[in-house]
Design a protein around this nucleic acid. Structure first.
Lengths: 129, 129
DNA sequence: TGCCAAAGTCTCAAAGAATGATACATTAGT
DNA sequence: ACTAATGTATCATTCTTTGAGACTTTGGCA
């Protein structure tokens, strides 16, 4: 269900955070769902337990998960605790979209194919439930 | 013209590469344009010359720039030397879009506002020339 | 022609981040 | 009560990034 790449330049815990946010956004993880234990997921992925723990903690700080010793980790929200004015979220989205689009254009993709990919991904995320 | 953030988690040279790709995609940097020297740009941004040199080298490897001792650095292409089958570019775009959209949804943005931002950014990049 | 200033490149050191190994603390169940 | 399973904390190690400085090449100009 979760895949990470050991030779990516992006840190493992960041990859994990992205994957988990993706699963939440897609509705594959719902409020109340239990996540695998840090040891279990670390073993599955072949990485260290601390790396998983760090990802869980970051999402806990964001208000999406709740963790407790002996109790495990659970999804408690699908909407992030706001970390500033909403314009910041907009700004970050503009930046990541601008960066992704610049990469795509330089890679030689046409505007049409890029729009198609955008629509596909947006539907995947907003369709469910 | 170029701005970077010292307290961002993303490395300075990566920020620089993104900024420069953005300028190329936007048409603000055209084939034949000279870039500032590594010392000049480093001084402007208040960072080390090696960091700028690394960004230039990465874009040189990608086929967008050409550098030479004593000669400076020039834009030689606006389309990247392909680093694999085109499906890889598609795949990377899908991933970054999926990640950006997941973040946006979790941040509480509506689908409509996200579409608006996408269209705005896409027009900025594809409008010119 | 020779020199020099300016350009990119290279080498090495320092600082910081990511990852791992291991021990600790808490909970729930038996 | 005990135990197994959970998240947490601490410390060491490795890797990446960033910086400081020397080296090399180029082009212009006296």
């Amino acid at each position: 269900m979760i895949t990470i790449s050991l030779d990516s330049p992006v840190p493992l815990h960041d990859q994990l955070v992205s994957e988990l946010r993706g699963l939440i956004a897609l509705g594959k993880l719902r409020v109340g769902d239990e996540l695998p234990s840090v040891r279990q997921l670390a073993a599955d992925l072949g990485i260290n337990l601390n790396t998983v723990a760090r990802a869980y903690r970051e999402l806990t700080d964001a208000g999406l998960l709740a963790s407790g010793r002996g109790r495990g980790t659970v999804v408690i929200s699908t909407v992030e605790k706001t970390r500033g004015p909403q314009s910041e979220s907009r700004q970050r989205l503009e930046n990541s979209l601008a960066s992704a689009l610049a990469d795509a254009k330089i890679a030689g993709l046409s505007l049409e194919s890029i729009q198609a990919i955008f629509i596909k991904q947006a539907e995947l995320i907003w369709k469910n439930r």
